[in-house]
Design a protein around this nucleic acid. Structure first.
Length: 134
DNA sequence: GCCAACGTTGGC
DNA sequence: GCCAACGTTGGC
């Protein structure tokens, strides 16, 4: 069971929006590295939901409810989407500053390449973040 | 608002 | 195929 992290600007689509909607199509990714991660997601994989621009924190956990399929918003047909459903919010958001300060997360993909909108999370990183969430 | 990082585009 | 120019993301 792999772990992932997705970024979203809460002004555009927040974790609360996902909870309200029950599920959402995660489309619009137009970056090859991010798209490779989307393609690697399996149904049931869990996904940390990070708020960029505003909040700057991991705020909840989602789950892949449908594996990669063609992104209907992409005319070229090169990119894929997945479907996500909410699992639960974190008891306490884990901020970017806290993550940067934790040596256990120094290798984390999202910290090493800040613009990557979909990235893998290693099991030990997942445990560290959930530990920080209390 | 600025700027660093990085991806993409297009001329050659 | 190289690389300069340009656009976008996202933290500060």
């Amino acid at each position: 069971m792999a772990g992932w992290l997705v970024k979203s600007e809460p002004n555009t689509y927040s974790f609360e929006d996902l909870q309200r909607d029950g599920r959402t199509v995660w489309d619009g990714v137009r970056n090859n590295a991010a798209a490779l991660h989307l393609k690697a997601m399996k149904a049931g994989d869990e996904v940390l939901f990070y708020h960029s621009q505003e909040g700057l924190a991991v705020v909840g956990i989602a789950r892949v409810s449908r594996e990669a399929f063609p992104d209907a918003t992409d005319p070229s047909g090169r990119f894929v989407a997945v479907e996500l459903e909410p699992v639960r919010p974190l008891a306490r958001p884990v901020t970017l500053a806290e993550m940067k300060a934790n040596p256990a997360l120094s290798e984390m993909a999202m910290l090493r390449q800040s613009r990557l909108s979909v990235s893998p999370v290693r099991p030990e990183e997942w445990r560290a973040i959930l530990g920080m969430a209390g």
